[in-house]
Design a protein around this nucleic acid. Structure first.
Length: 590
RNA sequence: GCGAGCGUAGCACAAUGGAUAGUGUAGUGGCCUCCGAAGCCAUUGAUCUGGGUUCGAUUCCCAGCGCUCGCACCA
């Protein structure tokens, strides 16, 4: 059968075709092909069980009819076995594994094969999105890291992705901040470290507002003035934002993030009038206790819990700007999908927002994009509580990344003292940041996760270092064997064409894992859960390590050497492609 | 009070309704004259409780219990 990138898809098609020719109710038959536990094969089709049960048929008999009707290319490529109550198991033959590996020979080829699901679509990913006037802290890490991985996965599936940093540059923090700026500014501190000074001023304003309700009211008035376009307040505001964005960019550079647009809340300030008008016209919004709100009568909670889109004092809030944002992304960017990456505490807000947007767009006949709120849990310390410094302060992201690099440098120095210090420093920069990213991406984003340096910068287990190490070993093989044999490189591991199908148990296990790359990225992308890809890469690195320990590559027999080099080359290709999809940088030595 | 998320070995985590619930770490025992031992191989140990749906439930539903979070003008 022709070699396809996603083998499970091809099996699904073949099974549907077999269902027709075997006389099943083909329209009602869903093959349910999925990757299988290696004990049972490479893929399994479970659909016969439910189909047979619903019709009171013997599932094994149905499976036998189906298998007999499979197109000839399936038994040519797979050993097909009916097992248990009616599972159909497919185990790739070595020749089919070899055919897949030979063809999928470059990152560009992999991407071209994968880029079908969302071809021609435009997706907006809203992530990171810190508030200005504050430094980024550890709480901002997950949105940035998970969001970037999702962007890359969506791009790999064919979408045009617009990365949007929806910064909080228009919130009520500016009321307190401007209030304090006018009264307590330290000009010298502002000149030397503006962000530190803004943070100090915010704390001063916040404390004063908490202590004195008159101050709180004054701060509110400053915010209203700002939102009305008062020139003095606007000048202060702009100064704060410019300084903040410069500081953010240093973090993004370390994380490998480049935003296409930075359209914060302020960008939508002049669009709120249309929001008030349209939600009024459509009858969605109503006055309640002086505020303009939306209720959802069909919803058990939101029939009484309001979605406040204009406060009683007349100011807009983030509901207003988020509504305007959804409209802008639809009208200006023609978004097919919108993904917002924030922590789970905002789940109510986005549920209300999306409910409102759906009704509003339907009433106005606007095209409705797919709307996804991608949530994640909090990062906790080893005590299970939100991660903080010893004295209870927030951990600044800048300091976290610096410490990660320092710890990685110590580790690299301990293990690879022969590498020159300046190169070790560069390696440590990659290992440190990758370790932080990977610790976040390697587990299901829904749960909280415990931050422990020893686990993150570890040499062992499901860590960035383990994956980078596997890659570095492969590079090392090609440095040695490539030098001895003309034309052999990781990108072209078999120039002589001597490689054949995998033979040993560890060669086969590695090859069988490699061909399931397509399933891993499909699963990670469709669920917007990068940890499925992380898990796959970890298992791939594990299969490689087992292969590497069991089967020597640098053997004299040219055919054996060639087929093992092919496996090394393809492992490196898929490992590095996958790590890059997660947003990690890779290494050739470490 | 109402609602949401989470609850899996000592610890940290997986499991797209499938087969004997996987991995790391810690523990134990092996493997470097041989391509990088940051590695490999072997081994001990777990689904919060009780019902239900299903041929099949860690997964879906219901009721408890525990932790975390949200619930009128912060984002």
């Amino acid at each position: 059968m022709p070699v396809t990138f996603n083998l499970a898809d091809a099996l699904d098609t073949a099974l549907k075709s077999a269902a027709t020719s075997a006389g099943l109710e083909a329209a009602a038959f869903v093959p349910e092909v999925r990757t299988a536990d290696a004990r049972h094969g490479d893929f399994q089709a479970n659909g016969v069980l439910g189909y047979a049960k619903a019709r009171k048929l013997n599932p094994r008999a149905v499976a036998e009819k189906l298998v007999a009707a499979l197109p000839a290319e399936v038994p040519a490529a797979y050993d097909v076995v009916i097992a248990g109550p009616g599972f159909i198991n497919f185990t790739l033959k070595p020749s089919a594994l070899f055919a897949w590996l030979r063809i999928h020979d470059s990152a560009a080829h992999l991407k071209a094969s994968a880029a079908t699901a969302r071809q021609g679509q435009t997706w907006i990913v809203d992530y990171s999105s810190p508030n200005t006037a504050k430094q980024m802290h550890v709480g901002h890490l997950r949105s940035a890291v998970i969001g970037e991985a999702i962007c890359r996965l969506l791009e790999f599936s064919g979408a045009k992705v617009i990365r949007d940093n929806h910064i909080g540059d228009w919130g009520t923090q500016f009321g307190k901040l401007i209030w304090a700026y006018q009264r307590h500014l330290d000009a010298a501190a502002l000149a030397s470290d503006p962000l530190e000074e803004f943070e100090r001023l915010y704390k001063v304003g916040n404390a004063a507002a908490e202590a004195d309700s008159a101050v709180l009211e004054q701060a509110r008035q400053e915010l209203v003035k700002l939102q009305a376009g008062d020139p003095a307040n606007l000048a202060i505001w702009k100064r704060i934002n410019d300084a903040s964005l410069g500081a953010f960019q240093q973090i993004y550079d370390q994380l490998g993030i480049t935003f296409d647009v930075t359209l914060g809340e302020s960008f939508y300030n002049d669009q709120v009038g249309r929001i008030y008008r349209e939600l009024g016209e459509t009858g969605l919004a109503q006055e309640s206790q002086g505020a303009l709100v939306v209720f959802h009568p069909e919803h058990p909670r939101f029939k009484t819990q309001p979605f406040i889109m204009r406060k009683a004092d007349g100011a807009s809030n983030y509901a207003t700007t988020d509504l305007a944002t959804a409209l802008y992304r639809t009208e200006h960017f023609h978004a097919d999908g919108i993904v917002v990456v924030t922590d789970f505490r905002q789940a109510d807000h986005f549920e209300q927002l999306f409910l409102t947007v759906r009704k509003w767009f339907a009433a106005k006949h606007y095209r409705l994009p797919e709307l996804h709120h991608v949530t994640f849990g909090v990062i906790t310390g080893e005590d299970g509580k939100a991660l903080r410094t010893r004295d209870g302060g927030t951990i600044k992201l800048k300091e976290l990344l610096t410490e990660a690099e320092a710890r990685a440098f110590a580790l690299v120095s301990e293990r690879s003292a022969d590498i020159p210090p300046d190169e070790r420093q560069k390696i440590a920069a990659v290992v440190g940041v990758a370790s932080i990213q990977y610790s976040d991406l390697s587990q299901n984003r829904s749960s909280d996760y415990v931050f422990a340096w020893d686990k993150i910068i570890s040499l062992e287990g499901n860590t960035a270092a383990y994956l980078l190490y596997a890659g570095a070993r492969i590079h090392s093989i090609f440095r040695k064997l490539g030098a001895a044999e003309a034309g052999v490189t990781a990108a072209s591991p078999d120039p002589s064409g001597l490689a054949g199908a995998p033979e040993t148990p560890t060669e086969l296990a590695l090859a069988r894992k490699l061909v399931k790359f397509a399933d891993a990225i499909r699963l990670a992308t469709d669920t917007l859960r990068p940890h499925f890809l992380s898990l796959y890469l970890y298992e791939l690195a594990g299969e490689f390590s087992a292969f590497y320990a069991a089967d020597k590559v640098a053997v004299d027999d040219p055919a054996i050497r060639a087929r093992r080099l092919l496996l090394c080359g393809r492992t490196l290709l898929i490992l590095e492609t996958g790590l890059n999809l997660l947003g990690l940088r890779t290494l050739t030595r470490m």
